[in-house]
């Protein structure tokens, strides 16, 4: 499979939020305002790209040669935690204002299942190094696009009358379902 098709399918047909259901907590949590959604998307893009590259290297040059593949989950999550911590430290030194505006999103990325999920999917799909980069980049762009579109929809919720029992999560879920339907017309499922 070509790099471009991996990249585009990661954005659309195999979107991590809408078809693989990864990163749902941040999807519903941070998509209340458009600016927050874009910030979150930026953070995810950065961390996902770097940690997939490092996870790829660690898997193929450390875990595989020493035959300790069963340690991949534990080592990947530690790599992601370290990366997040490192990025936070660097940001604090270089650009404190940006760090303040990112606030709690950055540390929360450690427990974002989208990032660990993409790192594991790279390994499961047996991607090469370039394919890993294409998949990580595509997935994170897909994440950002979906979370941004969803946030623009969610800001409209405040102006309309929603049945009491559907407020909060239920209506978000149904909206997301409709988004998948629109997308699946495009894919042709």
């Amino acid at each position: 499979m070509g790099l471009i098709s991996i990249f585009t399918s990661a954005i659309l047909t195999q979107n991590i939020i809408l078809t693989r259901f990864l990163g749902l907590c941040s999807f519903f949590g941070t998509s209340k305002s458009e600016k927050k959604a874009l910030l979150m998307g930026g953070c995810v893009t950065f961390v996902m790209l770097i940690s997939s590259i490092i996870c790829y290297l660690v898997y193929h040059f450390v875990l595989k040669p020493y035959d300790i593949i069963y340690l991949r989950t534990i080592s990947f999550i530690l790599i992601i935690a370290i990366m997040v911590e490192l990025i936070e430290l660097i940001l604090k030194k270089i650009n404190p204002t940006l760090n303040d505006s990112l606030g709690i999103y950055l540390p929360l990325l450690t427990t974002n299942c989208a990032i660990l999920g993409v790192c594991l999917l790279n390994i499961n799909n047996a991607y090469s190094f370039m394919e890993t980069i294409a998949f990580a980049l595509g997935s994170s762009i897909g994440f950002t696009v979906v979370i941004y579109i969803f946030s623009t929809i969610q800001t409209r919720f405040e102006k309309i009358n929603i049945p009491k029992c559907l407020k909060g999560y239920p209506i978000s879920f149904i909206t997301a379902g409709l988004m998948v339907l629109v997308l699946s017309r495009y894919i042709g499922v």
Binding site: T19, P170, G177, V180, V189
Partner: peptide
């Protein structure tokens, strides 16, 4: 399908 998942759970 994924769409059904979201709608059912909602």
């Amino acid at each position: 399908t994924p769409a059904g998942a979201f709608i059912t759970i909602g």
